[in-house]
């Protein structure tokens, strides 16, 4: 168990019940359930193609769901119109697997981009201060005028994280935050995820198949198997499990 994080178990920020999503005849999510609490980091593990990325894309409203209940910060996602969805997205950060930095813009412009449409939320703070503060949080202030193509893989992930943090989200969804990184840099990113959780009291869903990242960064782990929440517990408990689908991840 980590120290420093304050988890409020009475306050769920994401509530998913019986979520279904299919692409044609391919049923990806088949009645998935999950509760994420305020200030809590939950790692979701599953095989490639098991629907982990689909799940968080449903949560942020990039993919429509077929059936079930999906409540984020008290609002039911399928019932929101575009404007309300955009409004909600200022409180939910999304960290893309490939960082998804806009490669025609400098780091500074990348960070300013989310502020273009959502100035109301942080209107008392100058854009320049927000950008610099956000970059300081990930330790990359010196990269402010660089282009994404000049950055290493780990730096890109950090900048993308800074771009997410600039909106001061209450929830962050990480899509494979450590994929494509060496173990050392991967560990640094995992530590950074913890640091963000402690400093900003954000809740997070971490999609990963990197055991190290799940061990370091998660308060709780969920195994996504056959479209369902197959097992959920702490890392230590799940790693002792003898159930074959769970055990397969730890061996």
């Amino acid at each position: 168990m980590k120290t420093g994080a304050v988890i409020d178990y009475k306050n769920p920020v994401i509530g998913i019940r019986n979520l279904w999503k299919s692409f044609g005849s391919n049923n990806v999510l088949q009645g998935f359930d999950l509760q994420l609490h305020s200030g809590e980091n939950v790692a979701i593990m599953g095989k490639s193609g098991s629907g982990k990325s689909v799940l968080i894309k449903c949560i942020i409203g990039l993919l429509p769901i077929d059936d079930g209940e999906l409540i984020v910060l008290g609002k039911s996602i399928p019932e929101l119109n575009q404007h309300a969805l955009d409004e909600l997205r200022t409180d939910v950060g999304f960290q893309f697997q490939g960082s998804a930095l806009y490669d025609s813009m400098t780091v500074r412009e990348n960070l300013e981009f989310p502020l273009r449409r959502h100035r109301e939320k942080l209107k008392n703070i100058a854009v320049d201060d927000l950008v610099k503060e956000s970059l300081e949080n990930v330790g990359l202030l010196h990269a402010i005028d660089m282009m994404p193509s000049e950055l290493s893989g780990g730096m890109k992930k950090r900048i993308a994280l800074a771009r997410t943090l600039i909106m001061r989200p209450k929830i962050i969804l990480y899509d494979e935050p450590t994929s494509g990184l060496d173990p050392v840099t991967g560990k640094e990113i995992s530590m950074l995820i913890n640091e963000i959780q402690e400093r900003f009291q954000t809740a997070a869903l971490i999609i990963t198949h990197d055991l190290g990242c799940a061990k370091v960064a998660s308060d709780r782990m969920v195994i996504l198997h056959e479209g369902k929440n197959y097992a959920e517990s702490t890392y230590d408990e799940l790693s002792q499990s003898n159930d074959p689908p769970v055990k397969a991840f730890f061996t």
Binding site: K57, D86, F96
Partner: peptide, 20 residues
């Protein structure tokens, strides 16, 4: 080519998520 590579690297999704 520009839009296709933006699509592949999820930059278009990233814009959508950031409210643009």
């Amino acid at each position: 080519a520009e839009l296709a590579s933006m699509k592949v690297t999820e930059q278009i999704d990233a814009m959508e998520v950031s409210g643009t």
